[in-house]
Design a protein around this nucleic acid. Structure first.
Lengths: 245, 245
DNA sequence: TTTTGAACTGTCACTACCGACAGTTACATG
DNA sequence: CATGTAACTGTCGGTAGTGACAGTTCAAAA
């Protein structure tokens, strides 16, 4: 088993900001644990799949090329299970539950990725999703013992790393999300629209003219960069921009 | 330090469904770790605060009464920090960052709650939030050592418990939402509508007539008991009826 | 004091949405 | 075979949403 002291040191480093860059964190994880590869993914849902906001991994150039060209991240059942759930997802479980994805797992084996591993869902601000996938080149028996002992370490390390990624993004991206903040009235009209009210009804409720309701709604659409009230409301709900009724 | 074997056993039990009821989990946690109190909270954001969807705790009747009557959960800075973030929140950190809440912490001390502890944010679907707050009656020094050693255990146990809570809620609530279940096509048209597509565009994408798109959308509106596509999409996003993947 | 941002209003023309009418086809289940 | 469910289509007429035109008022920040 891995040295417990080394694990605690790693957790300290990640918690107290010593791993600002993904590469540092990945290197530290691979050094401390017997991990072959790591993949960190932040995404938000779209109609026809996922918009990948951030993707870091330790694949070599060749493996990454295969992963990209075959668009594995679009169909990878592990990603689907992990991004949709809360529980850690075992690679072998995903493989059993999606027999039709067997070719995918063969392709993954080509690039040294599929033996044993786990994907950890991570908490994110409303509507977003993130995961850390961990891959080990171990025998099933060896992995099951190793997993039982270190899943808690993986989980905490993943959470802490994810937190520092989000904090880093918040400070870096604070500027370009300024224009996406909705004003009070914009939020109000969106909220009532999400409640099924027409422009005329919203105008009556808020005590303003129908034209003004349309004005706020147009502003909201522009800020959210969408083309319809329906899409605006979907975005607003996903990003928790409007209150739940 | 706590027996490592007992910790691993606890994690196994929680992972493999042996803790369906919060009371069982809480009892197991308090037995395994030197924990005074636990609080599990699921919530969703509202305009003026939080709507608490589920709340379990190990307070005694008197303490719970105080907590409720003083509505501590509405102003508790620990809940605010934990529900809004990703990182584990130390009770003492929250206390330092919100000096104006000092009376609250005094009130908490009355009911044996505030000495040392941590609150763990948990990943949740579709705009919801959850946390597990852990409280220990330890000296600061004792707690810092204990925390360093067991935060990873707390984090994984919290994640696994939270997962089974969500799964339990999903199976329990599946019956009375029978008529609210959408068919495949209804989900598809809602999804594309949420992506800002018009009926004509959706018809083209799905390779069916515009009239048929309207048919599915009408069915979806009827099932969801709403009056507009916008409201339908808002509902669907909130209830995670349309794919977040 | 100028500037900026939020809140507010009017009209025109066009497109999208929505309800109500009345059907067909295919497949699984009892 | 009957029943039920999902998927599918057409037409009509009214209402709602959308973009582009062109403004006013007020308060706070620069």
């Amino acid at each position: 088993m891995t040295d417990q002291q080394a694990v605690l040191d790693l957790l300290d480093i990640v918690e107290y900001g010593g791993c600002a860059e993904p590469e540092q964190f990945f290197a530290l994880m691979r050094r401390t644990f017997k991990i072959a590869h790591l993949l960190y993914l932040e995404a938000e849902p779209l109609a026809d799949g996922l918009k990948v906001c951030r993707l870091h991994h330790t694949f070599g150039a060749y493996a990454a090329e295969i992963y990209r060209t075959r668009a594995l991240h679009r169909i990878d059942p592990i990603l689907r299970l992990a991004l949709g759930g809360v529980r850690p997802v075992e690679w072998t479980t995903a493989r059993r539950r999606f027999p039709e994805c067997e070719p995918l797992f063969h392709a993954a084996e080509e690039i040294g990725l599929s033996t044993e591993g786990v994907a950890l869902p991570l908490p994110s601000p409303a509507g977003r999703m993130a995961l850390l996938a961990i891959n080990a080149n171990m025998s099933p028996v060896e992995w099951s013992i190793y997993r039982r002992c270190h899943l808690r370490d993986f989980q905490l390390a993943a959470n802490l790393f994810h937190a520092s990624m989000l904090e880093h993004a918040a400070t870096a991206g604070a500027i370009d999300e300024r224009d996406m903040r909705l004003t009070g009235r914009e939020t109000e009209v969106l909220t009532w629209s999400a409640a099924g009210k027409s422009y005329w009804e919203i105008a009556t409720i808020l005590g303003i003219s129908e034209r003004t309701v349309r004005f706020f709604m147009t502003n909201a659409r522009r800020k959210l960069n969408v083309v319809s009230n329906t899409q605006a409301v979907a975005q607003a709900v996903r990003h928790a921009l409007i209150p739940t009724i």
